[in-house]
Computed example of a mutant assay.
Amino acid sequence: MTRFTRLLPLSLLPALVLLTACGTEKAGPEPADTLSTGAAGSAETTETTETTGTTETTETTGTTGTTGTTGSAGSAEPTAPADPATPADPATPADPADQGDLDARARALGMAPELVHVTEAAGFTLAPQSVGVLGDDGFSAVYIARKTGAQLRLSVERGSIDADTCPRQPVGGMPGERTTCVREGGLWYRTGAGRHEYARPGDGYVVRVQGETDAVPRDVLRAAARAVHRPDAAEAAALLPAPRFAGTEPPVERGDLPSFGDGAPRNDVEAGG
């Protein structure tokens, strides 16, 4: 049997090759969507293959497991990103000193804490180096006027003052000087030896503010006497210096002091010395 072969015209060959190539190209799989549901979800991928005159559809069904953000089945709200760390608030500065520390400072200077007082007067400033002990455990401080150099002396000592004892207590502690006393409310105005002062009796002690008569006017002296008060924490911290030795460490023992006799150092020289 003789078979005849039909030849296509050469002009149709490029079109036939292009058609065959397009029909046999396989489509790539589409990306699968992942759902953050916290449970197993299904992802469906469809692959389609086309041939000339025929279309094949292959369905591939798989199961994709995902882990939810809540750790249990069911839907979970997406978690917002954590905020950056918030810097800590600056530390609140502590009080300049507590009462126990202030009392320790006063005692280290030899003063009774209850006798420590401060005052204020227009144009006068405390001279820190003047702060010191007065008598057994009293307190003394000097305020200076920078413009004139005048001085106000604040002193607090144990004792009392009244109409009988006032004339017998010389102003400034200078014996032999005549003292005059005038009552002004709760104050005693006293003069003598070119000085004047206001004395105010307290609970077992006397507060005095004095100055030179020709340097400090009486009204300034009176105002300073009325302004005398116990210091608060800030005032006391500025008034009383910190003790140089807190007494927490034992003193250093010298090795050249004998344990007998008057304790004089050993001056004997060993051989070769």
Rank of each mutant, 00 (worst) to 15 (best):
Y143C: 06
A27K: 15
R146V: 13
G135T: 05
T191Q: 13
A43Q: 11
Y198L: 04
R107E: 15
Q99R: 14
R183M: 04
Q99L: 09
A193E: 03
R230G: 15
Y198Q: 06
L126V: 06
A80L: 02
Q129Y: 00
L152N: 02
T70S: 14
H196L: 06
F260V: 13
P31E: 09
G172K: 03
S160H: 08
A242E: 14
F139D: 04
T64Y: 00
V156E: 02
T66P: 01
R153G: 02
T58C: 09
E56I: 10
R107A: 09
P265L: 07
T179I: 00
E114F: 06
L10I: 11
L240K: 06
D164C: 02
P128Q: 09
Y143H: 09
V131T: 11
S72D: 14
P231I: 03
T79S: 04
L187I: 05
P113S: 06
R105T: 10
C166M: 00
A80V: 00
T46S: 13
G132P: 08
S11N: 06
R218C: 00
M1S: 14
G149A: 02
E114R: 12
C166W: 00
S130L: 01
R158A: 10
G132R: 15
G74H: 03
P96S: 01
V207Q: 11
A88I: 05
